[in-house]
Design a protein around this nucleic acid. Structure first.
Lengths: 300, 300
DNA sequence: GGAGCGCGTTTATTTTATATACGCGTTCCT
DNA sequence: AGGAACGCGTATATAAAATAAACGCGCTCC
């Protein structure tokens, strides 16, 4: 089966499954295919997936039957919702999505500085070729109020649920750090690497954050929260890169004292809080750490 | 130009732009076309976008030329990074992505309860047909420790940066509320709507959150933060649905007292804090609100 | 210096898709 | 009630796209 036909059959099934119906005109519009071809595709789909469709003369559409057997796609709620989010956030055009009738959706969103597309391209290039680049970086460090050129060797990307950064070896400070992509204002001059990915200890090693329901919740509430976070016996283990620990804790509300927060807002606490704090210091994300920690790194 | 050819040309340009190179074998592998056809596609691309490629005999690949003129795609950093995230989060299969050599990437992620795919399908159906459904909902309300059946009329979806909920009119409490999709355990019996989307005041109306840099930052740091959040004159206006206000504030760390937090962790504060608090009460998300507020709603 | 590999191109053949046209049945409007 | 409108299916001939199989070329790497 040719790729184009396969795509159209998947499209038909996608629309049937998530939207409940499909039309010959849908195919014509989306794929630019001729009317007879669209008819053939629909016939072919009905041959390959018999019993999945019923034609409704009122709406003049094929309707998904009650007992629907998937044959071409393997749908997932989070994939569908991810498309919704992408459209809602503006990072995907509505006509590119296979979802035709987008339901109203809103995502908690914040304005953010743009990422320079050339910067990202050349960071990616440096990561692939395992080289270094010079970046004009706008740090938050009070010693460096203005953007300065510094050489870095990037090897990975991190997303804190809000912003993207490049994980890179900094040739100036001789350690691995996070560089927020929107704060890289310019980029130039490829060069030799300063350190390879394998030596980024904080990136390559994981710490287990153990979470549990907030102690002030009622027993039944704790059960709900436990299910929400896929906990087993009231706890869940989250393996987190040391380099990502700060962001994960922030996201989960575990940076300050979650047990003192209102349990209706803060549902979980860290069970191994003491170890978490030590790990956080180790990761140097707390930024209140002495300088003699091995393999330090920090966000700016 | 046929849809399939168009797709392949876009694919070629995508790979050239983001990955720096493309191969005949790449086309054969991804689209399942024959070797001669892949050759023809590459030739066609070079005709339509002359000067974009150079053949490198070492790697036996077409390399993106230095001065690259986009002809078929309109790339965006956040679209590319969105794909990275989707793969990193597991909500997209690596082979479905057009990115071949996925750089190392990590996203601050949390285990989460699954969404029942049938639940989502039928909620979507209810939204489209503007009807109601009965859902078996696991609330956190201490009066209802066990899941109960309740009729709702959903009309939209919300994403708080972490979880998805359905915005719906609750026939039991006679008001609009948020229903977390993972907590809907079962679904049944379509019915007539209880209220339409237009009467969900908290969803349809917006409040302007005004944010600014944390006052304890240095002047230069404030400038950086201002740029990070696309602020103008040191402030940015965020129009937020009342129904989403709680989530946005939580995400931005503005729920408690951001000005008392360490500015290195909490970069921004709300300028119109008093109004924000009133709006938050209005939205009934604080859950510490008297019962006589018009058109109340709340998260459970 | 030769094996290996990826590229390009040729041929004949098959598959896919198109344009154009027609009849059918249902719905909806007058 | 009658007819226009619309979407469906299908027929035909034609055009385009893609395939299989085969060959030579040039470069790299061993």
């Amino acid at each position: 089966m040719r790729w184009g036909v396969e795509q159209r059959l998947e499209f038909i099934e996608f629309r049937l499954f998530w939207e409940g119906s499909i039309n010959r005109a849908d195919l014509v519009e989306f794929f630019g295919v001729s009317v007879p071809q669209a008819s053939k595709d629909l016939t072919l789909y009905q041959e390959r997936a018999p019993g999945n469709t019923e034609y409704d003369n009122r709406s003049k559409r094929y309707i998904a039957a009650d007992k629907f057997v998937l044959r071409f796609i393997n749908p997932d709620p989070y994939v569908y919702l991810g498309q919704l989010r992408a459209v809602a956030e503006g990072s995907a055009a509505p006509h590119e999505s296979w979802i035709a009738r987008l339901p109203q959706a809103d995502a908690a969103l914040t304005p953010r500085r743009d990422i320079d597309i050339e910067v990202l391209r050349r960071i990616l290039d440096a990561v692939r070729s395992k080289g270094s680049v010079e970046v004009l970086y706008q740090s938050m460090n009070r010693q460096r109020p203005d953007p300065i050129w510094r050489r870095i060797t990037p090897h990975a990307f991190g997303y804190d649920g809000f912003r993207w950064h490049a994980r890179a070896y900094c040739h100036m400070e001789h350690k691995f750090k996070d560089f927020l992509l929107p704060r890289i204002l310019d980029i130039r001059s490829k060069g030799k690497p300063g350190a390879n990915a394998e030596s980024d200890w904080l990136w390559n090693n994981y710490f287990d954050v153990i979470i549990g329901p907030h102690p002030d919740l009622t027993e039944s509430q704790k059960i709900v929260v436990a299910k929400d976070y896929c906990m087993d016996d009231g706890t869940a283990v989250l393996p987190v890169r040391y380099a990502m620990l700060f962001y994960v804790l922030k996201r989960l509300g575990l940076l300050s004292n979650p047990e003192k927060e209102d349990p209706r807002r803060q549902h979980i606490v860290a069970i191994n809080k003491a170890e978490v704090l030590i790990a956080l210091e180790k990761s140097n994300m707390s930024q209140e750490v002495s300088r003699n920690i091995p393999a330090p790194a920090g966000g700016e």
